[in-house]
């Protein structure tokens, strides 16, 4: 069953094989948990919200259009669940570098995205530094970077998952990299 495609597992589950659900969930548990953790920024809430995500996936499995990409569908659910959680907590999510109008003086003041200097990659504390810097980005920017570089989604898949136009995703990716670069340089 581990070799089955997502579509095959869903089909088997809907036909009555209850075991396939656990295989399907197990397959996506780590990526979804990682996504939620990074979106929300803390482990305790990430655990609860991850459970909510999979319960929603289970509830809506019958309605899933099997012609569509299952991976992007579940990331969409994960994103919406995270947003609902933040709304309930009434958390105002913003980046300290953005104004209320969405203007970002950090990204706006840098004309070009240049490659990272090699010495940044050679730092021994690169992981901690990167984690700290990523927390300074807004969730929207963080999510695009994580989905692209950690979960290896294409921009098209990210656009589908976040339910946004592809040019918005690409633009957000570029601005995120620019901000990241600036923060790493400081």
């Amino acid at each position: 069953m581990a070799d089955y495609s997502d579509e095959q597992l869903i089909k088997d589950y809907l036909e009555g094989n209850k075991q396939t659900l656990e295989v399907l969930i197990g397959r996506y548990l780590k990526p979804i948990y990682g996504f939620v953790y990074r979106y929300l920024g803390d482990a305790h809430n990430a655990e609860d919200v991850t459970q909510d995500v999979f319960v929603k996936i289970w509830r809506n499995l019958k309605k899933f259009d099997r012609d569509k990409n299952f991976k992007t569908w579940i990331f969409t659910i994960a994103k919406n669940t995270c947003l609902d959680f933040l709304k309930k907590k009434r958390t105002v999510v913003f980046s300290e570098y953005e104004t209320e109008d969405g203007e970002n003086y950090l990204a706006d003041n840098i004309a070009d995205l240049s490659p990272l200097p090699p010495e940044i990659l050679e730092r021994t504390d690169i992981a901690q530094m990167l984690s700290a810097v990523m927390q300074k980005l807004s969730p929207e920017h963080r999510v695009v970077l994580f989905l692209h570089y950690n979960d290896h989604l294409t921009f098209r898949e990210i656009a589908e998952a976040l339910e946004e136009p592809i040019h918005t995703v690409k633009s957000r990716h570029r601005r995120a990299l620019i901000m990241l670069r600036k923060l790493l340089d400081t």
């Binding site: 656990e22 991850t50 990659l121 690169i126």
Partner: peptide, 25 residues
């Protein structure tokens, strides 16, 4: 940037999270 993000550890879910998810369902 891909090399940069390769340094970022993937958050590990708690060991019993799968069990908790299945129990919730």
């Amino acid at each position: 940037y891909e090399k940069l993000f390769a340094h970022l550890p993937m958050p590990e879910p708690p060991e019993d999270l799968l069990n908790k998810v299945m129990n919730r369902i």
